[in-house]
Every structure is written in structure tokens, then in C-alpha cells.
Design a protein around this nucleic acid. Structure first.
Lengths: 204, 204
DNA sequence: CGAATGACAGTTGTTGATTTTTGTCATTCA
DNA sequence: TGAATGACAAAAATCAACAACTGTCATTCG
């Protein structure tokens, strides 16, 4: 169609579109090439294998989740409330994707299963963001933690049920929000920030 | 072989054995009946469907996990240490099964995927056990929690990564024990039982 | 007479012949 | 000359014919 130069960027865009339309099982490199109006051999000039292309697509999706969170983590604001907003944003990002377009979400889950490396890096990045908030909290005197880096990872681990896609089917449970509140309260108190992090707001 | 009367109990034993040998995909009701030396029609006299038989087998496996934990939960001992032993036993029960016989574990995972109801009851039972320990801890003045029942469930949720089979592949990670320590410390402090629960015992 | 049987219909799983896909590379194109 | 092509071998996915399984029930067995 267009005769813009063939770049990894354009290939990734086409690959996402093909995945969206055909799903992870049916999407082929030939499909991606066809969407771009080139031969599949040309795609292999930019990505050494289908696996590499798959990893790059997965990485993009994960980056779209973690980038906005990075901004929250870096805010100059009280750490307990910031941690809460950060976690809520993380949970909301995953949940809205899972419930907004379940098929596409399942597609990416299938991708992630074969892109362990990429996912591990994403989790490390999230743990670092949480650790940053905790470390800030300790510096500000709003939290205490012997090892902020470990505590950040622990916060992520302790809330896994609410953002780890392995639990996605549980997100439809009406009790999930109450469960999140309970875990968050436990975690916040565990960080020595008992009542600060926005008590139950009495609305409705 | 034997001519003992055909009971649900004997059928369940045979079903477990057949599952162990053939796996969840290949195990059939006819196989179970053959193992017992009866026709498959006889099995249907005791279980209304293959699904019911499957559920009963899953229930047995889960009961063998939760029964020993129930004993720990009921002990008359300091709650923080008891919570730690209870969680360690839970984690060890799952992990030893997952790593001791991965194939059999995978078999039961496949069973659980189709026995949601049974699994939900198991999780409720575990949450009740954790809640009991927390309530005891509050009564003994060793912990504080506004809602011990919710806190018990929160403890289970927060440690999901270490006992929920959805995370089984992560249990091979050498960092998993350190991660558990960090989450447990966070949880214990969140229950207002900061230093009590057995500090890092310096051995080796 | 109540428990067990096995033939049966409808559904689900298996198998292997055939097609499609991946990844390479000698050749073409601009 | 460097990017793009498309024919090709090896590996993987598909599909339709066939086999096995589930669940029922009229009949048999003790």
C-alpha cells in the first residue's frame, strides 16, 4: 500500500493488527508481510525469527502498561497515597484490558507464555517502581522498611492476585474490590503507614 | 480381582490410580471400571457422571492438603508463630507435590480447572483457618485487626504467589524463599505483630 | 428384587495424508 | 550495492475418516 520504508516499527504495528484480527494461533509471518504489501522474506530482514517478532510485540504491550505507572512512581507526593494510586492504576490497567477486550487479552497472554524473558523484565521494572515509592516513603518519614527494595518487591508479590494475569478469571468476582482493600490495608500497615493511605471514603 | 462390595470409596481409589497412570486426558470411566473388574455401567450407579467422579477425586486431594493445616490452625500457641508455621506448611504442601511428581501435579491442576466449585470451597476453608489464627491472635493480644475474618482472607490472598498453583512455575525460582520471607514480614507487621514471628534464625 | 451388565446413540478424540508455515538463500531490482 | 523477492526444504498445522468414550436403559444375574 504505502511505499514508506519498511521499518521494525511499521512491522510491529502490522503484527499487532494481524494478531488482533487472527489471534495468536492463526497469525503468520506471511499475514504480517501481506498486511504490509511485502514478501515475508523482507520481514526476516528486520526480525531474525517469528519468536523475536513476538517478543517485540509483547514488550510493546507491557511498556504501554508500565510507562504511565513510572510517572506515578516518580511523583513528588506522600508515599502512602502514591502507592495506593500506583497500585490502583496497575490493577485498573490490567483489568480494563482483560474485561474490555477479552479475546485480545487472551491473545497477549498466549504471547507472554512464550516470552518469559520479556515478562520477567517487565515485573522487575514494576518492582523497581514500587521500591522507589517505598524508599521515598522511608526518606520522607512516612513509612519504615528495613530493605525498601525487598519491600517494593513484596508489595508487588502480595498484590499479585489483583494484577497478575494468572488470576484474571478471578477479577470478575464481585468481592475482588473488597479483597484488594483488605490486602492493601494489610500492606500499608506492614510498611508502618497505618491510617495515612486514604481511609475508606464513605460515598453513596 | 477382589469381590468386596463396590463402594464410592473403592471407585475413588481406583480413579486416583487410573489418573496417576494415564493422566487426565486419557483416563476414562471404562479404565476405572476395568481396574475394579466391573462394567462401566456400575460406576455410574455410584457417580452420576464423569464430572462428579472427577470432582470427588479433586476434593480428596484438597482435603489431604487442608486437614493437617486445620490441626495447626487449632493449636493453642502464640498466633504469630502459629501463622508462620501454618503458612509454611501450606506452601510446603503445595510445593512438595508440584516438585515431587510434576506430572501428577499437572494432572490435578487439569482436574481443578474443571472443578471450580470444589476449589472455591477449599480456598474458603483455608481462609477460615487463617482467620481463626488471626482472631486468636487478636484475642491473645498478640495481633490487631479491625476485621479478623477479612484479615485472614487477606493473608491468604497476599501469599497467593507462594501457594496458589497458578504460580507453580515460579516456585523453582531460587529467590522464592527470600520473596516469601519479605511478604511474610510485611503481612505480620500489617497484623501488628512486628518482631514476634520468629526473626531470621541464623543457621549454617 | 436390587445390583450389575452390555448394546446402543450421540459425542468426542485420534490418526495420518495433505496443506501451510517457517526460515534460508541465490537471484532480481532500483 | 543494498534492499527485496520468491522458490525451496524441513517442520508444524489441518482435516476428514475412523475409533473410542460417555451416559442410558432394557435385560440378566444371584
Amino acid at each position: 500500500m504505502t511505499d514508506a520504508p519498511l521499518t521494525p516499527e511499521r512491522i510491529l504495528e502490522a503484527a499487532e493488527e494481524v494478531l488482533r484480527r487472527f489471534g495468536p494461533a492463526k497469525a503468520t509471518v506471511v499475514d504480517v508481510a501481506r498486511a504490509l504489501g511485502v514478501s515475508h522474506g523482507s520481514v526476516y530482514r528486520h526480525f531474525p525469527s517469528k519468536a523475536a517478532l513476538r517478543d517485540a510485540v509483547a514488550e510493546r504491550w507491557l511498556a504501554r502498561v508500565s510507562a504511565p505507572l513510572e510517572a506515578i512512581a516518580r511523583e513528588d507526593a506522600p508515599a502512602p497515597a502514591r502507592l495506593r494510586r500506583w497500585l490502583e492504576a496497575l490493577v485498573a490497567a490490567k483489568r480494563s484490558r482483560a474485561q474490555g477486550d477479552p479475546e485480545l487479552f487472551a491473545t497477549y497472554l498466549a504471547l507472554f507464555a512464550d516470552a518469559r524473558e520479556v515478562v520477567a523484565e517487565h515485573v522487575d521494572a514494576l518492582a523497581a517502581q514500587a521500591a522507589r515509592i517505598v524508599a521515598d516513603g522511608v526518606a520522607r518519614g512516612e513509612m519504615t522498611a528495613p530493605d525498601p527494595a525487598a519491600a517494593g518487591r513484596a508489595v508487588l508479590d502480595a498484590t499479585a492476585r489483583f494484577h497478575n494475569p494468572a488470576h484474571a478469571q478471578e477479577w470478575a468476582d464481585p468481592a475482588i474490590d473488597a479483597a484488594f482493600e483488605a490486602v492493601f490495608a494489610l500492606v500499608l500497615r506492614g510498611l508502618g503507614a497505618g491510617e495515612t493511605g486514604e481511609a475508606r471514603s464513605p460515598e453513596s
